[in-house]
Design a protein around this nucleic acid. Structure first.
Length: 588
RNA sequence: GGCCCUGUAGCUCAAUUGGUUAGAGUACCGGACUGUCGAUCCGGUGGUUGCGGGUUCGAGCCCCGUCGGGGUCGCCA
């Protein structure tokens, strides 16, 4: 071994022992007669000391060491003089008095220093990912990711789940996200699709009798990226047979409890609270509300309907909603200019404007206050339970727009007003999603989750009469405002499946052509089953307290889905294309 | 596809708002220094201001286009 200990390991108890450490030169301090090297590996840092009197040859060599050189050093672990202890280092009570030095790998001048305080921009970091990955923050994130996946596998193993792999090269299925396609050499003109999720395969495994399945599965979706979305990402994929919705939620409750307890030391109350989709949309305007703080939406419909403010009253008349939220003690914190900025912000979500009301000792102070009678002003204050110094924002629009605008505003205000501890966790289930929504553009019903999602038993009759009111047996796990998992009970009854296909305007022939292999699986004795998938990258991001998943992925892609390190995607040889029967037809 | 932010030395940033030779810290190179830990001190190298046009006596700064990076809306069953 080229080391006897790691760079995070040595303590006062090792004093007097011989030790060999290997690692990267994090910092060097050259005093001519004495040279200090902070040697770094993923376990920590240890100071190596090269004294002229100990060995002049090695000491001279040490003076040539530079950042990121890889070296091995051997010597005696010695206690530092009391006034030379470095409390910032775990190993700060000792140092290694070096008598042997091997330069294992000299480094070219690095583009930036992993130990530096100024972080370069992300483009530089991604192009030089090897250097970036040496940063302790990134190393800790990947270590936590490992601990999480291990905890997940152990948890499901204890519960009797089998880890089974499913194909990466699959069949393109319609609906859902855009597929990544892989051309077939053997089958001219045919393509595989990379899985958006192992959805159909895990259902087939249920039909095949593997009644508890889990997999940490890579998924691919060719859609635009976000801070929490990569084109390839990892799901903790779970499916269970002979279960109902409560059974799935219970298993996941246990996993979440164990995860938060073991990885971040938080006892989250269990079972996780459950809210209906209708309730969270009404109270928070979002199907993934951040419950670390309150600031619930308040309905002003009654007052708006009869007030003199035309924007409000006409919205109510045309079937829209007037709702608002209260920013506590924010009246002085938001100047008119800042409120104008918030108005622009909500316009991104379709709102046409943002009304605001400052609450003071005398009532409401606002350009629109004059439209409200003293009684209505008092009623508004009462509804919001407003106190002097508070600031009320209102949006008048369709239900959908008021939800989108106010929930975005709520998240922003919660963050800006520091209404919650960013290290805290708030997890909840959202259940009873609608099964379908009507796509006005295409003039048809579209599955909210996916076409195999079982309707709520009480709502099955409504499939014929009022499809929009049918609830699904589907559920999302929401953590700090992120969709952290999503799943459903699946249809295993071919008559109901047919009914859903009918609503989705998928003909029997088309269904057979597109999902024949699933329908065939369901035909030969299908058990009731359901499952869920957790977004692994998002979970690790949340556990780390980060706000983008690139910092928990070793080699992530940019917003344009390219890998700046390897240069993917790239052009390929004409020969490769010819073998695949592909002719390029590029835009001008 | 839309909107917003961004690109100046290897890296992090500045440049008195259009004005002379684009600066600083750090890294790198050379020198001094035997207890530093953001070592210190002295000196030095380093720039097609992402790229291409335009306006102007004059552009890092203004305009148009384009490329890269980030955020977001649409999109993501």
């Amino acid at each position: 071994m080229l080391r006897t200990h790691t760079c995070g390991e040595l303590r006062k108890t090792h004093v007097g022992q011989q030790a060999t450490l290997s690692g990267w030169v994090d910092k060097y301090r050259d005093h001519a007669g004495i040279v200090f090297i902070d040697l770094r590996d993923r376990y920590g840092k240890t100071q190596a000391k090269f004294n002229l009197e100990d060995n002049s040859e090695i000491q001279r060599e040490a003076r040539g060491l530079r950042h990121e050189d890889v070296i091995s050093v051997t010597g005696e672990v010695v206690a530092r003089p009391a006034d030379m202890v470095n409390p910032k280092l775990e190993t700060g009570e000792i140092e290694l008095r070096v008598t042997q030095l091997t330069i294992q790998g000299k480094s070219a001048t690095p583009p930036f220093l992993p130990g530096g305080s100024d972080l370069p921009n992300e483009e530089i970091r991604l192009k030089n990912r090897v250097v970036d990955l040496r940063r302790p923050e990134l190393q800790q994130a990947l270590i936590l990711r490992h601990k999480f996946t291990k905890l997940v596998r152990d948890y499901f193993d204890r519960q009797g789940f089998l880890d089974i792999e499913t194909p990466i090269l699959g069949r393109s299925t319609p609906e859902g996200a855009r597929d990544y396609l892989v051309p077939s050499r053997v089958h001219e003109g045919c393509f595989y699709a990379l899985p958006q999720s192992p959805q159909i395969f895990k259902q087939l495994l249920m039909c095949a009798g593997y009644d508890r399945y889990m997999q940490i599965a890579r998924c691919f979706r060719d859609e635009d990226l976000r801070a929490d979305r990569q084109p390839e990402f990892t799901q903790i994929d779970v499916e269970m047979a002979f279960v109902q919705q409560d059974d799935v939620l219970e298993v996941i409750d246990g996993l979440i409890g164990e995860t938060l307890r073991n990885l971040v030391g938080i006892e989250h109350p269990l079972p996780l609270p459950r809210y209906s989709y209708a309730e969270v949309m009404e109270r928070f305007g979002s199907d993934k509300p951040d419950m670390r703080f309150g600031m619930e939406l308040v309905d002003l419909g009654e007052i708006a309907a009869h007030c003199d403010f035309g924007v409000f009253s006409s919205t109510i008349q045309s079937g829209g909603r007037v709702r608002g939220l209260l920013a506590p003690a924010a009246a002085d914190k938001y100047t008119r200019k800042m409120i104008d900025e918030l108005t622009e912000f909500v316009k991104d979500y379709g709102a046409k404007g943002l009304a605001f009301l400052r609450v003071n000792e005398n009532g409401l102070d606002s350009p629109i206050a004059k439209f409200f009678s003293p009684e209505d002003q008092a009623a508004i204050i009462a509804k919001f339970q407003a106190k002097p110094g508070d600031l009320i924002f209102c949006v008048a629009d369709s239900f959908a727009v008021s939800c989108a605008a106010l929930s975005a505003l709520r998240n922003r205000l919660g963050r800006e007003l520091k209404l919650y501890d960013p290290r805290s966790f708030s997890c909840l289930w959202v259940v009873d999603f609608p099964l379908l929504h009507f796509d006005a553009e295409d003039n048809r019903w579209v599955a909210e989750h996916h076409p195999f999602c079982y309707p709520h038993p009480d709502d099955v009759p409504k499939l014929d009469t009022d499809p929009g009111a049918v609830r699904a047996q589907s559920y999302d796990l929401v953590v700090n405002g992120y969709e952290a998992a999503s799943g459903s009970i699946r249809i295993h009854d071919s008559a109901i499946q047919q009914k859903v296909f009918d609503l989705l305007q998928i003909s029997p022939e088309e269904a057979e052509y597109r999902f024949g292999f699933l329908l065939q699986g369901l035909r030969y004795g299908a058990p009731p089953h359901g499952g869920i998938a957790l977004g692994l990258d998002r979970w690790v991001m949340l556990l780390c307290g980060y706000d983008n998943i690139r910092d928990v992925i070793a080699f992530p892609k940019t917003q344009k889905a390219s890998d700046l390190l390897s240069g993917a995607p790239s052009e390929v040889d004409f020969k490769q294309l010819r073998e695949l029967h592909i002719k390029l037809n590029l835009p001008e």
